[in-house]
Write a protein that binds this DNA or RNA. Structure first.
Ligand SMILES: [Mn+2]
Ligand SMILES: [Mn+2]
Ligand SMILES: [Zn+2]
Ligand SMILES: [Zn+2]
Lengths: 157, 157
DNA sequence: ATTATAAATGGAAATCATTTCCATTACGTG
DNA sequence: CACGTAATGGAAATGATTTCCATTTATAAT
């Protein structure tokens, strides 16, 4: 169990407790999948992955847990236009891994990118400050996605 | 009928024709609502607004038309997290009115903003160029939204 | 450890936006 | 005006998410 790994066991136990939520097997399982699996999973994806090991965790609970996690800011709920919500763990306490997305409108492939993030974040911070002042709007989050056609899809005429 | 107004009558007739689409009363009505009404309308919103004047236009046609418009790039399909898609006319030929959104996570209010757009667009162009090269990804569009709490919702403790 | 309490659960049923189907209508070329 | 085909509407299907409610379970108090 690596020292710096915040997703390993239970850094989030405290967060749950602190907010008055109880720790349950289902929640543990779901957070575990989210932190160890790559990609952008739908509720059903998660349900399927969990089911063999935890057959007692129902799809309803997956949805409910994702809501909780998302309201705690531990998970991002994303929409890539394929008709279902997809989820990914937010950065751990370290704040690392911040990234945005390229979305292929042909095949729905998603590419995470972190390039240019520094510039983007710098501008975002400036923009957010300005917007907060002008619109008296407390910004907590942002979403940036680029849409287009991926390399594979370009090939297919 | 103002001269510079591209949404007035039929600048899009040509676009439709050119792509092999037929002009129908329904399409005209829908595009008319979208270009003259403020805000971010859902398919159902549009259906309701159109119905009194064009009772013969069905909800299915509204969806179909929005798909076409959106595939032609004349309309943006947006998701603000309230469970339905919302639409707004893309900029006319003039290229004006480009804007992004602030989304209140409490009351779902949407604020259009154009401030800082210049800076943003400048960075976006740079970023897009870099991403296109690195990922061989042809970018056609981008989505930028800030989430947070609006002034009204802040008041309510 | 036992108990009490409210939170959490699963599974079936409900909801609701969007899509599919298909018989009918109507745009636009000639 | 007639024809071929795109477009339509309305009902039914779909599919993700939510709601309901009787049952289970985590946790704090005894
Ligand atoms: Mn990602
Ligand atoms: Mn807008
Ligand atoms: Zn693709
Ligand atoms: Zn608000």
């Amino acid at each position: 169990m690596p020292k710096g790994n915040c997703h390993g066991q239970g850094w989030w136990h405290g967060k749950f407790r602190g907010c008055g939520y109880r720790l349950t097997a289902g929640r543990e399982a779901i957070l575990d999948i989210l932190s160890h699996e790559e990609g952008h999973l739908s509720a059903d994806d998660i349900y399927i992955k969990i089911h063999p090991k935890y057959p007692s965790v129902g799809l309803t609970t997956v949805y409910r847990t994702l809501d909780v996690l998302s309201s705690l800011g531990m998970v991002y709920k994303l929409d890539f236009g394929d008709g279902r919500s997809r989820y990914e763990v937010a950065e751990g306490p370290k704040g690392a891994h911040h990234h945005h997305h390229l979305v292929c409108t042909r095949c729905n492939r998603i590419i995470d990118y972190t390039d240019f993030i520094d510039d983007e974040v710098e501008l975002l911070n400036r923009t957010e400050k300005g917007l907060e002042k002008k619109y008296k709007f407390k910004i907590t989050n942002h979403l940036i996605q680029f849409y287009g056609v991926c390399e594979e899809c370009s090939g297919k005429a």
